[in-house]
Design a protein around this nucleic acid. Structure first.
Lengths: 133, 133
DNA sequence: TTTCAAATGCAACTTAGTTGCATTTTCATT
DNA sequence: AATGAAAATGCAACTAAGTTGCATTTGAAA
């Protein structure tokens, strides 16, 4: 049950269960792709406050509930931790509709970095065309 | 000789040889990492016009002389074509100083994308610590 | 049911980048 | 060298994304 899961997500991190947060997490849970501020605002209603929404996105990101993806000057957010935390997935960016999807990362990669450089995480961005375009 | 190379770069694309463009390309040629608008402005002098600089960055990018890398809301530029054009390199982002370096990409990768999705280019971003941090 | 930190709402601000337009410059042609 | 047109510049005003300060409200622990 989705509602219980959302309560759990918030409670575990000591985050208060507000109307906006519940709506926001509900939306993230059913989203099929990463969402920009404008997409979220469009979905949750125009009366949602800009600062409150941005602050919650930051809060959720810091709490590891969602992760941010930079996409040509506009941040997009998707459910789940980022790749900084051991969870491995790649981002697919459609060059037609500019939609960003999280996809599973399979297959090994090796990159030689210059001497003195220490690799921590390897992110992948796949550019191409999505199934709707 | 650097000057001749710069003239060549501009001439081949029918771009006029202006003072700013020459200074800009000189700076890019000796840069060891990707540069933001502010870094470039700082290097070329405060009297450089914002629009002119931004317009030249766009022009150079479209001409395939430099390529843009998005980095948490700030665009950075580096010499060379992007990975959309067959040239393969990855970007190393230092999590201490936030500097972006272009590094050679070695080793094969395979990513399974969902049905109906078509992969064109695979970009890689390596996060870690650079040799100066 | 009180209490208080956390969250919200609003307005004002910042930062990155863009646009319109008049002036200047490059470069090819004479 | 002089000319002329297209390209590039400089300036000001604007937009879009995101942030900050502060007074008010709300959730949940006591």
């Amino acid at each position: 049950m989705k509602h219980a899961m959302i309560d759990d997500l918030l409670q575990k991190r000591g985050l208060k269960r507000t109307k906006l947060r519940i709506a926001l997490l509900n939306h993230f849970l059913s989203a099929k792709h990463a969402l920009s501020y404008l997409e979220i605002k469009g979905a949750l209603g125009e009366n949602v406050d800009k600062s409150t929404l941005y602050r919650n996105l930051t809060t959720f990101e810091e709490a590891g509930i969602i992760h941010r993806i930079d996409h040509s000057g506009v941040a997009k957010y998707a459910f789940g931790k980022g790749q900084n935390d051991g969870h491995h997935h790649a981002h697919f960016v459609c060059d037609q509709c500019e939609t960003v999807y999280c996809v599973e990362k399979t297959g090994a990669t090796t990159i030689n970095v210059p001497k003195g450089f220490k690799t921590k995480v390897v992110q992948m961005i796949i550019r191409g065309t999505c199934s709707y375009c």
